[in-house]
């Protein structure tokens, strides 16, 4: 199929996003694989002429939501969890892992928007279409994600809690 090559060409970007979203390599690659398999079974739904990349990210979003539905309750951070007082360490390598950990501590909805814009350079409108949410929701999630990540990296959870608006 002519699109097989396009799919293969997009693997590195799907993997990068999945790695950041899922955390570890094997879960991330499983997510990519499930995404590609699902994409083929639903390929008739892709509208020719639209951005194939955005469509694949939509498929991945759906697969990820389905996969994590059972886990989320257990693995995801409660917004007010005390873990958030993470302090930066002296060691640079540990700091990088702190960023990974802080990212993992974000609610998945916030992680998604943060990563789509930071890694994929998607426009806000593309993100809204990819995730199937209104533009205003993209913006509020993005701003919450950034503020929370900043707090997690600097131990200013209190500031976030006071500012947080549901």
């Amino acid at each position: 199929m002519e699109h097989a090559r396009d799919f293969v060409a997009l693997i590195p970007r799907l993997r990068r996003y999945a790695r950041a979203l899922a955390g570890d390599r094997s879960s991330a690659d499983d997510l990519v694989q499930d995404t590609l398999e699902r994409a083929w079974t639903r390929f008739h739904l892709w509208q020719r002429g639209t951005d194939l990349r955005a469509w694949l990210f939509t498929v991945m979003h759906n697969v990820h939501v389905n996969r994590t539905r059972g886990l989320r309750h257990h693995l995801q951070f409660d917004e007010d969890a005390p873990e958030a007082d993470a302090k930066p360490t002296e060691n640079a390598a540990l700091e990088l892992r702190d960023l990974e950990r802080a990212l993992a501590a974000l609610p998945v909805e916030q992680r998604e928007v943060l990563l789509l814009v930071a890694l994929e350079d998607m426009s806000y409108a593309e993100m809204a279409a990819t995730l199937g949410i209104p533009l205003g929701t993209v913006m509020s999630r993005l701003s919450r994600a950034r503020e929370r990540l900043r707090a997690l990296m600097h131990g200013h959870l209190q500031a976030v809690k006071l500012k947080r608006v549901k």
Binding site: F7, V8, I11, R15, R19, A20, W40, L99, L115
Partner: peptide, 22 residues
Amino acid sequence: LRDLYAEVLDEPLPERLVHAAE
């Protein structure tokens, strides 16, 4: 964030993913 995950782009593609993509 970009730095942290940049290297993933250069990793060799796992065979199972290439198969799935094809």
